[in-house]
């Protein structure tokens, strides 16, 4: 923690010094690097690429996306936090930033960033095989309650991943222990959906867009979505509250940000630009095409949202025994 806070201090100091210089040459005066902690071709990569392309259109300088992968996202997240806060390195961070530090895998938290805008949030769904006897979330919940602990199996991502927390949170909200349903770790959502289709699992809690191809193929059904309201792309899937009266929501979110201590000038340019981008037809079309859940918050709202998510993740992880003591 020590080195980090020193970095942050140094960073803010540098930002203060740099401020007058920036006032002279209007930001952005040269190409900006956008770091992405996940590999090319994934969902986060897609979001940051479209945002970068639209920022380039808005602000007239190239925004180059660089995939800084490794260490299950830790390397890229840390790279954004530790970059020079001069506005020429920005990045995208994902909900993992609210989870990794609870597991003791990194010291970087949401506080090490200057949030600029929340661009998307994908809530988890509850999917079952099309031949499954459970027709509604309520059916499934009752079957879970009636089953012996560990008998039913669910999957969607790796151990301690976001969809595992979604399951733990849902079970907790039902008054059950977090491991009442056995979690089968998978290497991402796609293999879990495949195993669901092969009748190897009882249900999955990955996001609905991740299950979309299987839904379209008629191989599985989505019983509910753990969101405050129905998804615009999937209006037929009820929310958890509608389906069974339990108000539990969570999600995998993506935030555009810079390192802590980003100059106010930069923030003043990027924040409204992101707001315009979010409302733009290009971005909305993109979200609709991929089935991604839209959600926007300005810088202050994003900060609040991340703080709240960080706390909620911590609680869920402690309940599930996933957090490091």
């Amino acid at each position: 923690m020590n080195t980090l806070s020193r970095r942050t201090l140094l960073g803010s100091g540098a930002a203060l010094l740099a401020a007058p210089a920036l006032a002279q040459a209007k930001w952005p005066a040269r190409p900006v690097q956008m770091l992405c902690p996940w590999a090319a071709g994934g969902g986060t990569d897609a979001v940051v690429r479209i945002v970068a392309a639209l920022l380039e259109k808005e602000l007239g300088q190239p925004f180059n996306v660089v995939n800084r992968t490794g260490g299950s996202g830790v390397v890229g997240h840390a790279a954004i936090a530790q970059s020079a806060p001069d506005g020429y390195t920005l990045g995208i961070i994902t909900s993992e930033i609210g989870m990794l530090h609870w597991q003791g895998l990194t010291e970087v938290t949401y506080r090490n960033y200057t949030p600029l805008g929340l661009m998307n949030n994908d809530p988890p769904g509850i999917q079952v095989n099309v031949s499954s006897p459970y027709k509604t979330a309520k059916d499934l919940a009752e079957a879970i309650k009636a089953s012996a602990p560990g008998k039913m199996k669910a999957s969607g991502t790796g151990q301690g991943g976001i969809w595992h927390l979604a399951l733990a949170g849902w079970l907790n909200a039902m008054g059950l222990k977090a491991d009442h349903v056995r979690w089968v770790p998978s290497n991402g959502a796609a293999p879990a959906m495949q195993d669901l289709a092969a009748n190897g699992l009882d249900f999955t809690t990955c996001s609905v867009p991740e299950a979309r191809a299987m839904l379209d193929a008629g191989r599985c059904r989505s019983l509910a979505v753990m969101a405050p309201e129905r998804l615009s792309v999937f209006p037929n899937i009820p929310t958890l509250k509608e389906a069974m009266g339990i108000d539990f929501t969570t999600g995998a979110w993506r935030v555009i940000c810079g390192p802590a201590g980003l100059p106010a000038e930069v923030k003043a340019v990027v924040e409204p630009a992101l707001a315009r981008i979010y409302k733009s037809k290009d971005y909305q079309d993109f979200l609709a095409a991929r089935g991604f859940g839209g959600m926007y918050a300005d810088a202050a709202g994003t900060e609040k949202y991340m703080a709240e998510a960080d706390r909620a993740f911590g609680e869920a992880m402690k309940a599930a025994g996933l957090a490091k003591a």
Partner: peptide, 25 residues
């Protein structure tokens, strides 16, 4: 089904989605 066969198709799926050619029947 949008399930990658290997590392190359994993990347390809991302491109398909990006271009609105969503995998699926």
């Amino acid at each position: 089904f949008g399930i990658p066969g290997d590392t190359i198709t994993a990347i390809a799926i991302g491109v398909l989605y990006m271009k609105g050619l969503n995998p699926g029947p």
